[in-house]
Amino acid sequence: MLPVNDVCTVYHGTNLFAAKIIRDIGIRLDAQRDLTDFGKGFYVTLNLQQAKSWAQIRAMHPQISPEILDQLNISKSQYFNHPDTKIPAYLAYELNLKELRQLKGKEFPLPHEPEWPHHQRSWERFVKECRAGKKHHYDYVYGPVGGSHLTDPDKIKVSYTKDQLSLNSMKATRCLSKLKIVACKPEGTHTKKSIIKQLLNHVRSLESVIDNNMFLLEIRDELMAIGNLTSQQADKVLRKSLASLQLNPIMMHEPAAYWSFSILYGTHKLWHKEYEMYMRKKNQVRK
């Protein structure tokens, strides 16, 4: 659950370009993504290291709402080529919990808390419904981060170390104050390539890597479906993307299809809306 204090510090991981936009024009809820764990909202965490990890990923895989670009009057190319998009950064806010709790909210316990077993199923159902596009009427929702379940796509896997607070209304975002932007040092490309090289030195082929990593296997299957690729073509595309993909456990909090879109389209276009259309169709097929 959220702290009992009247105030606390929360963090939002992103790239420096997006951080400056939030500072200059404020939080735009209409520009946030759908189909997330707790619905369309501005997400923060009490976990600084988690925000830093997300910042690294968001700097490596930048995306932005077309509406924001229109408001800024800049092109997609200008955004992708701007140096600030490649710099990880996090925003630190003071959150007025006393004011927040006067709003309509929903709080789930975290997995290490004694109440978790009594709320696990309702959390799973809530996350599954939000990821399928069902709307809710809460101003804010707090709880653990969800992840991909590797053996059952209809289930949601809970993170035992990561939390999230979605601010789903402007009333909730107004509980944030004292914004501070902190730029982080990008992770060295040499380090990432060294990790991938060490991994590949222990196997004979990409197929072996995939067989030992079900999430990569799921990404490959999505590459085949989204890009209309053969398994051999998908293997080749995935092999080329391993270093930039950054094999990081936090990746699994986005569905495999998300990373498949990132691999296929990267910084060539803004693909978030296309991704969400794909996921909506996929959810309809499951029903």
Rank of each mutant, 00 (worst) to 15 (best):
L2M: 10
V4D: 10
V7W: 02
V7Y: 12
H12D: 00
L16P: 01
F17P: 03
A18W: 02
A19Y: 07
I21C: 14
I22G: 04
R23Y: 00
G26H: 02
I27T: 11
A31W: 15
K40Q: 15
G41S: 12
T45S: 14
L48R: 15
Q50K: 15
I57V: 14
H61Q: 12
Y79N: 12
F80C: 13
I87W: 05
I87Y: 05
L91E: 06
A92V: 01
A92G: 12
L95D: 04
L95F: 09
L95A: 04
L100T: 02
Q102K: 15
K104L: 07
K106P: 00
E107C: 03
P109Q: 13
E113P: 04
P114C: 03
W116L: 08
H119V: 02
S122K: 14
E124L: 06
E124F: 00
R131N: 12
R131H: 03
K134N: 08
H136A: 10
H137P: 05
Y138D: 04
Y138C: 04
Y140C: 05
V141L: 11
G146T: 02
G146P: 05
S148Y: 07
H149Q: 13
D152I: 05
D152C: 12
V158M: 11
T161Q: 13
D163R: 06
Q164V: 14
L167F: 10
M170Y: 04
T173Q: 02
R174G: 01
K178N: 15
L179T: 06
K180T: 09
A183F: 01
P186V: 04
P186R: 08
E187Q: 12
I195Q: 14
N201W: 00
S208D: 15
I210H: 03
D211S: 10
N212C: 03
D221M: 07
E222M: 07
I226E: 07
Q233G: 04
A234C: 08
A234E: 06
D235C: 13
V237Y: 14
S241Q: 09
S241Y: 06
A243T: 14
L245Y: 09
N248F: 03
M251R: 15
H253P: 00
A257E: 11
Y258T: 10
Y258S: 01
Y258V: 00
W259L: 00
F261I: 02
L264E: 10
G266H: 03
T267H: 01
H268F: 06
K269N: 04
L270C: 07
W271V: 04
E274R: 09
Q284H: 13
V285R: 14
R286C: 01
K287G: 05
